[in-house]
Design a protein around this nucleic acid. Structure first.
Length: 616
RNA sequence: CGGGGCGUAGCGCAGCCUGGUAGCGCACACGGUUCGGGACCGUGGGGUCGAAGGUUCAAAUCCUUUCGCCCCGACCA
């Protein structure tokens, strides 16, 4: 409870609105697009210094500190120890882990006066691993979980959305070290539960979802997603079991391949009748997209199969995707590039993360340019199809359940009807994004729903990736020297504050969950020149302060409307309105920001009532 | 990096096409009237027109270069 934490007492001195730096804006700043960014600027919480780099003003910083304090308390309670690692880190450590070369431009590099290379830490696996390998030698010292709350820097290609995606940002990062897998897994789930407590305490509506491990490496991971319309991530969630995963990661359940002879005719697609029909060429002048073709032929997009040509840097162990025809050799003489023909149902999307894993490439894959498509298919883009192409295509599992579908004809203005899997060579994989309505990959019975979310936390089981690369070893009880097993656990502190706003706002401004509101209560004397009003307001303000409630007294000589607008914009969970009219009857209003509901209570009751609303 | 757009007072914008006194609203200061949902009247202060170069008698305006920022995409613990 923040009302009782030590910080509160220190913050008590200056809570007169007229003395606080809260530069609210009446108009929307031109630079801000998303709600949290706009409201944080308007409420005077943050100001931009450069692209993706912000100053936190008093209100913004108080909220950040509150989130950080909740994180700190829960991490400590979970047995982790707080440390502070350097923001500027030497290149040697990054070279040791291999990430100096791998991390790319996102790593902000700099040189000191002696021309030595450094980076500004985007994360701290290297530094922490270096610390632990020096100081921890024995299994008796393990497990150990160390964390810090620090400013990080990632030179994002395109910073945007204010604190949601800055380049400089505040992150809590924790790293755990273990003697064996069991211990590491136990800590992983310990953190999983800790994160649930943290985001619950922040008053957020969130889901923990299975996630891709990204380039940090490791074996399994969960993301903590705040549910919000403006989220950049898509979450697949089962409506009957507890399965939830990032769409990037969610596996699709392969279709049941039905034996059409045993299925009643009316269960089958109207025009396939269970029979595999012969291929038929159709003229489709200028119809390139799935939607155009489907409309032109009067069928659903799910009757089509999209043929996508991808270019990628081939991994050393990868199987050649296409037979090495002379044509291909001519196209890619360096052998470093591969081309993959990918087939998915017309209404599905290729999941490029799944695809790159299958292709065993770490470089980004991309759709081939028009020229390459033309050379592979002998046709302009929009008319590619698998039939007649040399080599083996990568086909999505969903195709195995399809019959008599439509594909491109590898010829301008031509498509093929009644294509079947017998008509081309393909290997089948799960390589599409899961969609709403799909069967749940876990329980099979439920249906998948898709939600949007904001990633505020991510936990990883790292394994020995860093400990092996950096020789972070310990002596086990069997006398063997072994690499430690690691886990790492991040929380975007600023992003959590922004996500809270995305989830809790209305047309008037922010509606803070009380635990992370910059202040808990605003006392609004509507006319500071009326002695009765001011005395009552001061009395309420003093008793709230005495009770440890973080309260602002709006002592500005402004019209009531102004004070109401500011209070709503800033989002104080509770305001106490002291006006002449009600005061004649000895009453003031206690208003809850979230619902707008206002209770008239006696002056002497106001502080208690406000506190009561806060704890509810 | 590809595509689109914007830099004019603290904020939001007009002026630019068609070159000639730099303007509006909000904010700020002062005076007055107001005072329960961003009041009104009056007065006032504040601008290297992002920067550099060029064209011109004359450039916010036309040309070139450059920097910054925003949006879409690619990318992302």
């Amino acid at each position: 409870m923040c009302r009782s934490c030590r910080l509160t007492r220190r913050w008590r001195h200056n809570m007169l609105y007229s003395k606080l730096l809260i530069p609210t804006l009446k108009e929307d700043p031109a630079e801000a697009e998303v709600i949290s960014h706009r409201l944080m600027l308007r409420a005077g919480m943050i100001r931009k210094v450069a692209a993706g780099i912000y100053t936190y003003l008093p209100l913004g910083w108080r909220t950040v500190r509150k989130v950080a304090e909740i994180v700190r308390q829960e991490m400590d309670k979970a047995g982790a120890q707080e440390v502070m690692l350097p923001a500027v880190q030497p290149s040697e450590l990054w070279k040791e882990s291999g990430r100096w070369d791998y991390y790319g431009k996102e790593l902000l590099r700099l040189k000191d006066r002696h021309d030595r290379e450094f980076c500004i830490g985007p994360t701290a696996e290297e530094v922490i691993t270096d610390l632990v390998r020096r100081e921890v030698k024995s299994y008796k010292q393990l497990p150990m979980n160390l964390y810090q709350i620090q400013t990080k820097f990632r030179d994002e290609i395109r910073p945007r959305f204010g604190l949601m995606r800055g380049r400089e940002f505040i992150m809590k990062d924790a790293y755990s070290f273990h003697k064996d897998k069991e211990s590491a897994e136990a800590e992983y789930w310990n953190m999983y539960e800790t994160y649930k407590r943290i985001f619950t305490r922040c008053g957020l509506n969130f889901r923990a979802v299975e996630a891709d491990t990204g380039n940090i490496g490791g074996s399994f991971s969960h993301e903590f997603m705040v549910l919000a319309e403006t989220g950049e991530d898509f979450i697949a969630s089962c409506d009957s079991c507890d399965y939830a995963a990032n769409v990037e990661k969610a596996e699709c359940r392969p279709p049941e391949v039905v034996d059409t002879r045993r299925v009643p005719r009316d269960m089958l697609d109207e025009d396939d009748g269970g029979e595999l029909k012969p291929i038929e060429k159709v003229h489709t002048p200028g119809k390139k997209t799935v939607e155009e073709v489907a409309e032109f032929l009067g069928v659903k997009t799910s009757k089509l199969v999209k043929t996508l040509i991808y270019k990628y840097a081939r991994g050393v162990n990868a199987i050649p995707p296409l037979r090495e025809t002379p044509q291909l050799r001519a196209l890619f003489p360096d052998h470093g590039m591969g081309v993959a023909v990918v087939l998915v149902r017309g209404d599905h999307e290729v999941n490029e993360i799944k695809l790159s894993k299958i292709l065993e490439t770490s470089e980004p894959i991309e759709l081939a340019d028009e020229e390459t498509v033309r050379r592979i298919t002998d046709a302009p883009t929009g008319f590619a199809g698998p039939v007649g192409l040399s080599g083996i295509a990568y086909a999505d599992d969903a195709l195995r359940g399809m019959k008599n579908f439509i594909t491109g004809g590898n010829e301008a203005d031509t498509h093929l009807k009644n294509v079947n899997t017998r008509d081309f060579q393909a290997s089948y994989f799960d390589l599409r994004n899961i969609v709403s309505g799909d069967a749940c990959p876990k329980c099979g019975a439920g249906k998948i729903e898709i939600f949007k979310g904001i990633e505020v936390g991510h936990i990883f089981m790292l394994g020995t990736k860093y400990s092996e690369a950096m020789k972070c070893m310990f002596l086990d009880d069997d006398g063997d020297n072994k690499p430690m097993i690691m886990g790492c656990y991040g929380i975007g502190v600023g992003r959590t504050a922004a996500a809270a706003i995305e989830q809790n706002n209305d047309k008037n401004g922010i509606i803070w969950p009380a635990p992370i509101a910059p202040y808990e209560v605003a006392v609004l004397p509507l006319n500071i020149n009326d002695k009765g009003v001011m005395d009552a307001a001061t009395e309420i303000y003093e008793s709230l302060k005495k009770a440890g409630v973080e309260t602002v007294l709006d002592d500005r000589d402004l019209r009531p409307g102004f004070k109401f607008k500011d209070a709503d914009l800033i989002g104080f969970p509770v305001s106490v309105v002291v006006g002449e009219k009600n005061l004649k009857d000895g009453l003031v209003e206690v208003k809850r920001r979230s619902t707008g509901e206002a209770l008239k209570v006696r002056v002497s009751e106001a502080a208690r009532k406000a506190g009561e609303i806060l704890t509810k």
